[in-house]
Structure formats: structure tokens, C-alpha cells
């Protein structure tokens, strides 16, 4: 197995994208998961469904809407242009935005499950001990729901690494900017360079297998706590 310089550039870019997306998702996914886990509002159903949409929609649908919305005449494109940022398609940050939508359920759902599994009790106890909301989150929820957060981070990362359709639609295949591993593999196959395609694909299979093995192994360790998330 040997990788060309372009392959290695694609691998680095993919890791950079997945890391960025995971960090962004942990920050914005946590409050969404928190709200979904604890609310009794009528909105829980619709919001939960919107978060879960990328699980069932073809990536082409998401990619198509993002391309139109982020384009020069789309609503997001109008905002980014008026801020002097230009438009997002064909840029690394465009891929970040797309991937955040695309990987959202993989981050929100494990955290939501973990918080739901905690129940009201630990938070009520903490409240009677005069812990404020932030204090309760960082000293009670975070440690107790740690397995959920870890699972969320790992799945968010892995799912972004495995992304293809959205990137293909909004990426524009720019080396070092938007040409991630999955696109590189596609190009190798289309150009009939099967040896290179094999090397990269093999690496992806091993990576994905190891990630899932780690997640399942970790969940088994935590199983007595009753926190599980199935992919």
C-alpha cells in the first residue's frame, strides 16, 4: 500500500475537516441535545425530526440545498457576501457548514440519550445543594453523561470522514481545500486507477472498523450505566 502526495494531502484535509466539524458540533449540538432531552414542549417532535433528517435524506438533497442557499443569490450567500466573506461553496468552511448539518444527528442523539438516561434526580439533588445551572451542567451532567459525549464525538468525527455526497456537490474538488479522501477515491476509480483506489479504500475500511470497535467496546464497558447508542 502506498499513497501519493495528493492522497496524503487528501488524508490531512479530511482529518482537519473532521476535527473542526466535531469541535463545532460538540459546542452547538450539546445545547440542542440538552433541550431535546429535557423539554416537554410541543416543539420537541419537529426539532428532533429536523436534526435527524440527514439520517434519511440522500446527501445530494442536502448538498443541492446548501449549494443553492450558500450561492451568490441564496439567503446564506447574501449574508456571507454582505459580511465581506464571499460565498461558501468551494471553500473549506463551506464544507464545515455542510458537514455540521450532515453529521448533526450523530452527535446530538448520543448526548440526548445520555442526558435522558440520567433522569431528573441528580439535577434535583444538585439544585437543592444550591448548584446553579452552569454548575449543574459541568459538575453533574458532564461527568455522568461522559460516555454519551465521547460516543458523540467519535461518531461525529467518523461520519464526517466518511462523507461524500455533500462534499461532491459543494466542494469543487480543490486540492488541499475541498478534495477529501472520499472524493479522491472517486477520482481514482473514475480514472481507472484501481491500485490507488484500493490503497485509500482499504485504509478507510480499517479506520471505520476500528472506530466502531472502539465505540462498541467502550459502550460495553459502560453498559451497567444503561447508556447505549446503536449505529
Amino acid at each position: 500500500m502506498s499513497f501519493s502526495e495528493a492522497d496524503i494531502a487528501a488524508i490531512w484535509l479530511t482529518l482537519r475537516l473532521a476535527t473542526t466539524v466535531t469541535l463545532v458540533l460538540m459546542v452547538i449540538g450539546t445545547p440542542i441535545a440538552w433541550w431535546l432531552a429535557r423539554t416537554r414542549s410541543w416543539w420537541k417532535g419537529p426539532v428532533g425530526a429536523v436534526v435527524a433528517l440527514p439520517l434519511v435524506l440522500p446527501p445530494t438533497v442536502l448538498g443541492f440545498y446548501l449549494l443553492v442557499a450558500m450561492g451568490p443569490n441564496g439567503p446564506i450567500g447574501q449574508v456571507t457576501q454582505s459580511l465581506g466573506l464571499g460565498t461558501l461553496p468551494f471553500t473549506f468552511w463551506g464544507l464545515v457548514v455542510g458537514s455540521v448539518f450532515y453529521s448533526m444527528p450523530f452527535v446530538v442523539q448520543p448526548i440526548q440519550n445520555a442526558i435522558e438516561a440520567l433522569g431528573e434526580r441528580p439535577l434535583e439533588v444538585a439544585a437543592t445543594l444550591r448548584a446553579g445551572p452552569w454548575d449543574r451542567f459541568f459538575t453533574v451532567v458532564l461527568p455522568l453523561a461522559k460516555p454519551g459525549f465521547l460516543t458523540a464525538a467519535i461518531l461525529g468525527f467518523a461520519h464526517t470522514v466518511g462523507e461524500f455526497g455533500v462534499v461532491l456537490m459543494i466542494g469543487g474538488n480543490i486540492p488541499g481545500e475541498t478534495r477529501v479522501v472520499s472524493v479522491q477515491i472517486y477520482d481514482h476509480v473514475e480514472a481507472l486507477e484501481y491500485a490507488q483506489a484500493h490503497a485509500l479504500s482499504g485504509a478507510m475500511v480499517i479506520f471505520s472498523f476500528v472506530v466502531l470497535l472502539v465505540v462498541y467496546g467502550y459502550q460495553r464497558m459502560q453498559a451497567p450505566l444503561g447508556m447505549k447508542y446503536r449505529v
Binding site: 469543487g172 474538488n173 480543490i174 472517486y186 477520482d187 473514475e190
Partner: peptide, 12 residues
Amino acid sequence: VYGENISQTYQF
């Protein structure tokens, strides 16, 4: 920016 084929280029 590369389209995967001439159709995607047209669409870009």
C-alpha cells in the same frame, strides 16, 4: 474549481 464531469461544471 473542478466539476466531476462537464454536467457538474455547467451546474457550478
